[in-house]
Simulated assay, not measured.
Amino acid sequence: MTQEEQALVQALHRGDRYACQELVEKYAGKIYNVALRLTGHPQEAEEVLQETFINACQGVEKFEGRSSLGTWLYRIAANNGLMRLRKKEAPTVPLETAPDPDVPTEFWPRQLQDWAWEPEQVALTDELRQVMEEAVQKLPEPLRMAFILRDIEGLSTREAAEALEISPGNLKVRLHRARLLLREELASYFHDHPNGGQSRGTAH
């Protein structure tokens, strides 16, 4: 935890009325993005966002400081989002007992290597962006959350595992399964679009 985070946590403990506002301003964008990709609905994402910061500001005494403040907020958001999803979805098969294979990245679709939404890293067309977003939404909730935190938000394996309260090994299992399911889901699109939906300039 950084000194800035320590100061913010101390202010929250003191009941500083501006501390919670600062917490929201600092992390709201990231938490909303995670909530939106997890739930797939802006209204539900807003509700998860509000619940997350209410839980954090009112329950700061539960923060033990063993992880970063951001990781703790991701954990709260993940729990709130998953609770909502589980009210609507059928129970899933436990993933913790699955093997932990290591598949070389050259066997993944090119767009799934070092997955990122930033245009300077992957030039996504609107069509491909929509296809990818829909594919992520089809992932089972534990896999979806692992993929969002690790490959989209860029958390380390340790940070993502802490946020989901699972071991790094289990995080890797979920991430591996998510990538394989996405590969299957996107295979037909990449077959029909050899360039992955990326436009290329014509030679003159």
Rank of each mutant, 00 (worst) to 15 (best):
L186E: 12
Q6E: 09
D100Q: 15
Q6R: 11
M83H: 14
T125V: 04
H41W: 08
E64C: 02
L8A: 02
K30E: 04
S156M: 06
Q50G: 06
G59V: 05
L12N: 03
L49W: 15
E118D: 13
F147N: 03
H204N: 10
V173M: 08
P109G: 08
D114P: 00
G70H: 02
Q130H: 09
I152Q: 11
A187H: 04
L180W: 13
P104E: 10
V136G: 01
A123I: 08
F190L: 14
V103N: 10
V48M: 01
E184C: 03
H204Y: 14
G59Y: 09
F53L: 07
R14V: 11
A35H: 07
Q113W: 09
S199F: 11
E134G: 09
A90G: 03
P119Q: 03
Q137S: 12
V60H: 12
L38Q: 06
A135W: 07
W115L: 14
A7T: 13
A11H: 05
M83V: 11
C20N: 06
V9A: 06
I31G: 00
R14G: 04
E44F: 01
L155I: 08
H13N: 14
L128M: 14
N170S: 08
R174D: 05
S67C: 12
T202D: 11
N33S: 01
T71C: 01
A116G: 11
G201T: 10
V34W: 09
L180K: 13
L82D: 03
S188E: 09
L82C: 05
L73V: 13
L36Y: 10
G196V: 00
R75S: 14
L181V: 10
E64H: 09
V173T: 14
L38D: 00
E47V: 04
Q111I: 12
P194A: 05
P168F: 07
A7E: 13
L36E: 04
K138F: 03
R158W: 09
S156W: 05
P104R: 11
Q43M: 00
E4Q: 11
P194Q: 02
A45S: 04
G65Q: 11
P101H: 10
L23S: 02
E47H: 02
T52E: 02
